[in-house]
């Protein structure tokens, strides 16, 4: 059937559809599409919000990679943070989920308890509390002194050698969401498979490695991707606890981006950094997806895509 433009315009679904998506569509243009292209433009300019942007070509990107040690530092710090905190958090999440999946008294209550740090962890109150807990006179040092007799006279947050570690600990502590996702995944594993292996005399470790892990690999994969993306975007924890210090030891990428954009008003440079982040996240996600066929096991290959 050939449709003329008049018929097309007379289609009532056209108006209904656009009426319903209108608020979102307007927002898409104003808050996403315009900003994304404009920030791409800004990344090739020198811009300080007070005067008009000056086109400088690839200068921002050149400076970033050849002439800005703090940028390099921020990349290193962020990569280290992601490389340590994400696998650790997933290990904790998986271990606790596996334990909770066994027949333990009060598993539901335990699930809520383990989730609490994640629920609360996003709030400034808890981040500030973390800083005091591991401060020089905080509960941690106090514990070490009164119970083990170990005198520690550093603040874990402000000492350059432990600052990043204490932020990693804060992130690992919040394994609750990953744990809930693992728990849902574990419930999907057919009990008959595990029972059959048990009858065949497979040990618990063997069953976990050969049945549970492969069947859980799509969920591990999902948690890994989300963890990596979230890790690259870490901001509040560092901004509130250390402000990027001491000596840039916790200068996360987004903190440096924020500093450039809103403290030094190098908004062109900040936009360029944001685009590098966008590209890095996209490439990394694509790489993880590509590699997934090597280790992610899907039950029915045809039906479920990555």
């Amino acid at each position: 059937m050939k449709r003329t433009s008049k018929q097309w315009l007379r289609n009532p679904d056209l108006y209904a559809g656009y009426a319903f998506i209108f608020p979102w569509l307007l927002g898409l243009f104003v808050f996403s599409l315009f900003p994304i292209f404009f920030s791409l433009y800004l990344s090739f300019t020198d811009y300080d919000i007070l005067s008009a942007p000056q086109w400088i070509g690839f200068e921002n990107f050149k400076e970033m990679f050849t002439d800005d040690p703090r940028f390099v530092k921020s990349v290193k710090v962020t990569l280290l943070y992601v490389a340590v905190s994400v696998p650790l958090r997933l290990c904790f999440a998986l271990a606790v989920a596996a334990l909770l999946n066994m027949k333990i008294k009060g598993a539901r209550a335990l699930r809520s308890l383990y989730y609490l740090p994640t629920l609360m962890g996003g709030s400034v109150a808890v981040i500030v509390m973390w800083g005091q807990l591991f401060g020089i006179n905080g509960a941690f040092n106090s514990f070490m002194r009164s119970i083990f007799g170990i005198e520690i006279s550093i603040s874990w947050i402000t000492d350059p050698s432990t600052a990043l570690g204490s932020l990693i600990a804060l992130s690992v502590w919040q394994f609750g969401s990953a744990m809930l996702i693992f728990l849902a995944g574990l419930k999907q594993i057919p009990a008959s498979l595990l029972e059959a292996a048990l009858v065949d005399g497979a040990s618990a470790a063997y069953r976990f490695r050969r049945i549970t892990l492969p069947l859980l690999s799509p969920v591990i994969f999902f948690n890994l991707v989300m963890g990596i993306i979230g890790g690259f975007k870490v901001f509040s924890e560092g901004m509130i606890l250390t402000g990027g210090g001491p000596h840039d030891q916790t200068l996360f990428y987004v903190i440096y981006l924020y500093e450039n954009s809103f403290r030094f008003l190098h908004m062109g440079y900040g936009s360029a950094m944001a685009w590098v982040l966008l590209l890095a996240v996209s490439i990394l996600t694509a790489l993880v997806f590509r590699s997934s066929s090597l280790w992610v096991h899907y039950e029915s290959k045809g039906e479920r895509g990555a």
């Binding site: 996403s32 315009f34 993306i229 981006l257 944001a274 996240v281």
Partner: peptide
């Protein structure tokens, strides 16, 4: 999947 950091300056 878009990191919001790309949007904040124009916003």
């Amino acid at each position: 999947m878009l990191p919001s950091e790309v949007l904040i300056i124009p916003q």
